[in-house]
Write a protein that binds this DNA or RNA. Sequence first.
DNA 1: CAAAAACTTGACTATTTTAGTCGGGTATAT
DNA 2: ATATACCCGACTAAAATAGTCAAGTTTTTG
Lengths: 140, 140
Amino acid sequence: MKLNTKSRYAVMALADMAVFSNANAVSLRDISLRQGISLLYLEQIFLRLKKNNIVKSVRGTNGGYILIKSPKELKISDILLALDQKVKTIGCKKDSKKSCNGKSTKCITHNFWDELDIHINSFFENKKLSDLLKNKEARI
Amino acid sequence: MKLNTKSRYAVMALADMAVFSNANAVSLRDISLRQGISLLYLEQIFLRLKKNNIVKSVRGTNGGYILIKSPKELKISDILLALDQKVKTIGCKKDSKKSCNGKSTKCITHNFWDELDIHINSFFENKKLSDLLKNKEARI
DNA sequence: CAAAAACTTGACTATTTTAGTCGGGTATAT
DNA sequence: ATATACCCGACTAAAATAGTCAAGTTTTTG
């Protein structure tokens, strides 16, 4: 049970931006160098972050990306959502019919997995990007 | 981010046992029929559950498996552990050297992922198999 | 204006993981 | 004896992952 790298790198890259932007756009090249993430991969990730209004872009020389919300307001759940990284511990469908394992009734464990999803999602809902930066002055 | 089917089916199968065993061994065949899980797959899963002392087996006719602990004492985390289903949201290694992304220092998000792991694991630690059966009388 | 920096986008691919199946056992109750 | 049921390693098709590649467009600066 693990988060994919897209999600992890997205959070890492945005945290990097929060630290290093001084109201300026931050280029993917810089993030790539500081965080050790492939530039090409970052491009793919930021495409999604942009589409989902997490960042906006500035083209051209000295261009880069800018956080749309402040780190204090940006929830981690927003980031994960932008990358389709839903917490979905079960295969059971939420539909009324044929919900779990092809049966018409909810499976014996259904409610438990629902609880787990809620438990995890509330963690991401309550964490802001700024929370990641506490107690770690400009750690690179 | 999701649990694999082995883990889900394991929990489901053990919950089934908790409901349907009357101090008797429960055969995989019965579990397979009731829960709609492939018998062959169940065998593979129970092999692990047995190796990790979650269940014991009774061979021969009328054989099957028996829970070693009572549902009230069996933690969900024990089950997941038996199936190597560790919650490991990050790729960062815990080693002192080369911990995250090949750097010598912890990555900017390291502590956050650690917190998440703890958050999720505590959920599994605090849930017992018997907790899954509340409010659902013999739901199949 | 030319050139470099930096974003834009879709398509492609190797590797790994997942979700099982298969086949050939062994033990035991009746 | 024989049917039932556990035992166990090996195998495999399909999906997901973790990227790369190619071919752009836009904007700043010298």
